[in-house]
């Protein structure tokens, strides 16, 4: 049975790896999108399956939100799911941000495109820090401007007991859209991640 904890050293190290990846992502995004992307210091926590719905849905109360999911997997069994939760979306803002000037891109496609960009720019950097590389599944729009986040999360049968939750908030200053990225790394993959972190710690 694996332990359901991470040590303070492991957490600090993970926090640092994430901070570096975020810095890189923020820089790349700013250059590509031509606007400043504010990324808040991530919150890292170990959560159980039972708590996750409440933890995620609680932040949005009755707000209409959109939810996009994208899976990632790397070597040695590191894998997880990135959930992007958008509130108060300004659809025109996203189109403008992505440089889509005409009507040829639907709202859903804009959302998957921006999601994919936000997730993968961060995860590419994170993979590099972990000395691996990730493969990604295509992003999928789970909800589009609905008030039923809790219901949708409950329907997703999380087949793990506990997971590492990393919550990162993006704020795109010029275009008024907010998005929380929640990385969920399930138990078995978390053991691998911890082993990699221990290896990095040992190198210092």
């Amino acid at each position: 049975m694996s332990s359901q904890t991470i040590t303070e050293d492991q957490r600090d190290c993970l926090q640092e790896l994430i901070n570096v990846s975020m810095g890189q992502a923020s820089d790349k995004l700013a250059r590509y999108l031509g606007t400043f992307v504010e990324i808040q210091v991530p919150a890292i926590a170990l959560v159980g399956t039972a708590e996750i719905t409440g933890l995620l849905a609680g932040n949005y109360n009755d707000e209409a939100v959109s939810l996009v999911s994208q899976g990632f997997s790397g070597s040695e069994g590191i894998r997880g799911e990135a959930l992007l939760i958008y509130s108060k979306i300004n659809a025109d803002g996203i189109a403008e941000l992505l440089g889509y000037t005409d009507d040829e891109v639907t709202h859903t496609e804009q959302l998957t495109d921006i999601s994919s960009i936000l997730t993968t720019t961060f995860l590419e950097g994170f993979a590099e820090q972990l000395e691996t590389s990730f493969s990604y599944s295509a992003p999928r729009v789970v909800m589009l401007g609905e008030r039923k986040l809790a219901e949708h999360l409950q329907e997703r049968s999380f087949n793990w007991e506990y997971a590492l939750k990393v919550k990162i908030s993006y704020k795109v200053v010029d275009h008024s859209f907010n998005c929380d990225m929640v990385l969920l790394v399930p138990g078995s993959a978390l053991e691998t991640l911890k082993a990699v972190i221990d290896r990095i710690l040992a190198e210092f």
Partner: peptide, 17 residues
């Protein structure tokens, strides 16, 4: 352009197109 510049993959799904 995004793929070239950011070095990240992107996707298009039959559900959208």
């Amino acid at each position: 352009q995004g793929v070239l510049q950011l070095g990240t993959p992107t996707f298009s799904s039959w559900e959208q197109r």
